[in-house]
Nucleic acid binder design. Sequence first.
RNA 1: GGGCCCGUAGCUCAGCCUGGAAAGAGCGGCGGCCUCCGGAGCCGUAGGUCGUGGGUUCGAAUCCCACCGGGCCCGCCA
Length: 632
Amino acid sequence: MDPLKPAHEEFLRLVAGVARELGIRELPEIERTRHQGFGFFTARFHKYRVGQRQLEETVRRVQGSYEYLSGVSVSGLYLNADLNVRRVAELTLSAALRLGSRYGYTDECRAGSFLIEHTSANPVHPLHVGHGRNAALGDSLARLLRFCGNRVETHFYVNDCGAQVMYAALGYSALKAGIEERARRQKPDAVIGLVYSAVNAIAEINKLKKELEREQDDERKREIIREIDEWVSVLRRLMDADRDLVGKLVETLGRRDVASEAAELNKRYEAGDPEVRKVVREVVELVLAGQRATLAKLGVEIDHWDYESEIAVWSGEASRVVSELCRRWPQYIERRDGAVVFRADRFVEDLGLREALDLPKFIPPVTLMRSDGTTLYVTRDVAYALWQARRGFDRVIRVISSEQTHEQAHVKILLHALGCAEETRKIVHYTYEMVSLPGVKMSARRGQYVTLDSIIEDASSRSAELARGRDSKIAEEAAEGVGVGSVRYAFLSASPRKPVEFRWEVVLDIRQNSGPFLQYTYVRARSILEKAAGIDGNIVIPDEMLQEEREILMKVAEWPSVVRRAAASLRPDYIAEFLNGLSLLFNSYYEKAPVLKAEEPVRSFRLALVYAVKSVLEAGFYILGIPAVARM
RNA sequence: GGGCCCGUAGCUCAGCCUGGAAAGAGCGGCGGCCUCCGGAGCCGUAGGUCGUGGGUUCGAAUCCCACCGGGCCCGCCA
């Protein structure tokens, strides 16, 4: 139910009539007026080369009487119309009272079925802030599209292939008992994260030492020594976290050729060696248990966990991708020391695909297979993309950070080269920019990151701290909900295209544009309704409304179209912005207009208005995944 | 060196896809209010070369080009 629909239709009829009279063949676009004082709806006639007088006269001739519009006017070459606020208000309040937190849904926002892949962090460490943005975006897209009545399935791609997993597995099998014991006490992903970083550092140091022995050039030698020092200090830092564990890892693996062992392990894993398979899966499951717990805390549920090994490797799909490309495009295949390289650069150039596939201007060649016969991430990703595209959804949305722009372009090119036009069209690389923390440099390989767990925890304790001075028990209870709300809002409120700097003053700013601000608004609205104990269904719209009441009603009336726009353009931030605007209006109103103490019938009207605001906030909270706390 | 993205008020951001009215919010600043449903409040006000320079257009924050500044990426890593 869209309360603006009748008014929109009336305006549409007017505009169409005017256009017809003026001999304009197309229908001028109808917009929500951007500037105050020029009505609610606008149609522009600039490009049709008509005079203002002519437009005015035509409008006068064509316009009829309207139920939902008022004040049709021409200003310059704009045709504007205001709303009949009373009529629209009736529709809005009755829709909100009837639908509650489902208000906002309209049939027009259904757009098909969606497979959404998101988060897909490597299973060797805990989730960090960047994954938080990915998870919040992916999850909210899923919620938004579900709210709109679409079929949605969420997927997490478990990258259990490749060297980094093998590093974790090597460390794990070397110190199994100690690690398992720790994983019972601490979060298992944190434990494995430490193991992974330590083994990685050991491997790096060993590789560099070997290089140092062979190296002749003094300049280069000094540089290698510098790099070794850097990794040694990484190791030292990891020791501070768990001296016993990291010390034992150095002892056990320090003299071994960890890099070669990892490569060997990887080869056996891809071949499906049962022994390796068992170890790798054990370590991966430990990490996933931890990652799952973090996601659950954020209110994120994943429907399917897709294992790279199964879907791309053991199924033979990745190999088929390679052989099929060799068969179709032998002229673009090069073999370098046994590795298979696809000359994506020349392929794109020769076939002139840049425009058609909307590719970046620089495309490097892409290696499809290592010289030891194992697959590479991009090849497996192509196999996975095909698998996704063939699961019977209209669209596949892959939420992947902008770091992978080039890799995702490769996937697109390779799909095209395989002749999978249909599949390519379905797949969307939903990109978002990085999250940074002031003064923190992150590197997963160096075990240097701020975990999502610590961010959520920090947000919760800080929000409890901010509430000190009020009821501390309530603050305590609400802390986690407010913490989660603040974190999710911080990730979702900016356009995905913009880098986000995570700063506590902003994230927890109660006055505006934050999760807690919305939650606080919600608590206020809810508290009024609780005290009122029930709303009369017979709402009389008063003849004299406050300016704030008019504004809130029109804002609430716009909610369904905001939902539609957000869903159509896949932008949860539109929802966040809208809720922030609504909250600002409501808080201002709250201060001016007593609800419970008002005389009837104004009291009932105001209660209905509060209920409508509360309902919109609830719907928006569902979409953004912000906990609707009752008190805070 | 090349590629992708970002640059709008002191700060955080919306608007850019699809050009059109005086470029919108909030925070902070300044000045005020409050025996009232939750003060983590409210009202008012000042504050802008839309990074810079060209171009296209009747008209550019919006489209094109160049440059400057920031982030990310350019591997037989993922």
